[in-house]
Design a protein around this nucleic acid. Structure first.
Length: 221
DNA sequence: AAGTACCA
DNA sequence: AAAG
């Protein structure tokens, strides 16, 4: 009775905030194609530690693919069509990523999610991402689709103000989180990644964050 | 490990 | 501009 209550409380799943969807294992069937595509993207646009406008080095190594890439440096946060390191456009968004994004969007209730930006975040053990909002996009009607690969991590997802305490959501290889609508501007982050060894990715976590950064097309598609 | 304060 |  007492122990039973404890057990049922401990195993109860925390309800997600309105507008947040977790798709466990959703990306597993795409994993091999995803990893092959990522290898090519990273070869063309290497992972690098960007600087915040305050001049501090981010612990997460980043690169991008797609028409637009999110960057940060002393001049600020923004999307750019060219990789500042090479002066060349970011690698094209691989087909497998487009398909995965559309499928995940659909599963979360977004009929036509067509990202134009894919931020690739690489977390070595200890790397983290403090709470922030994704607010550099031109239109907040499209959701954010986040794909986790490699080492597990604790995703932090809060509300629209920094004061609200974030929910701690364990994420494993293949999990996808989608947030949009009332949660589109939710504060979110990642707790420091615990060291470990993933069979396919080794000692790292890779996160793909898919977004519509530029203007939405007026007539769908 | 998590929470809070603080930083300019 | 503390996505530290």
């Amino acid at each position: 009775m007492f122990e039973l209550e404890l057990f049922s409380n401990a195993s109860a799943r925390p309800s997600l905030p309105t507008g947040v969807t977790r798709l466990e294992g959703f990306a597993l069937e795409w994993q091999d194609a995803l990893l092959a595509a990522l290898t090519q993207v990273i070869a063309a646009a290497p992972l690098r530690h960007m600087l915040t406008p305050g001049g501090q080095r981010m612990s997460v190594a980043m690169t991008n693919c797609g028409a637009l890439g999110w960057i940060t440096d002393r001049r600020g946060y923004r999307y750019a069509a060219l990789d500042p390191r090479s002066g060349e456009p970011w690698p094209a968004l691989p087909e497998v990523i487009r398909k995965l994004a559309a499928a995940a969007g659909l599963a979360a209730g977004y009929a036509s999610f067509e990202p134009d930006a894919c931020l690739i975040n690489c977390y070595a053990p200890g790397a983290r991402m403090s709470l922030h909002q994704d607010r550099d996009e031109q239109d907040f009607g499209a959701p954010i689709v986040s794909v986790s690969l490699g080492l597990p991590a604790t995703f932090l997802i809060g509300g629209l103000t920094r004061r609200e305490r974030p929910l701690r959501l364990p994420l494993a290889h293949g999990d996808v989180v989608v947030w949009g609508g009332p949660a589109r501007l939710a504060y979110h982050g990642v707790a420091p990644v615990v060291d470990g060894l993933h069979p396919k990715l080794g000692r790292q976590r890779i996160n793909l964050t898919l977004r519509r950064a530029g203007a939405l097309k007026l007539n769908g598609n």
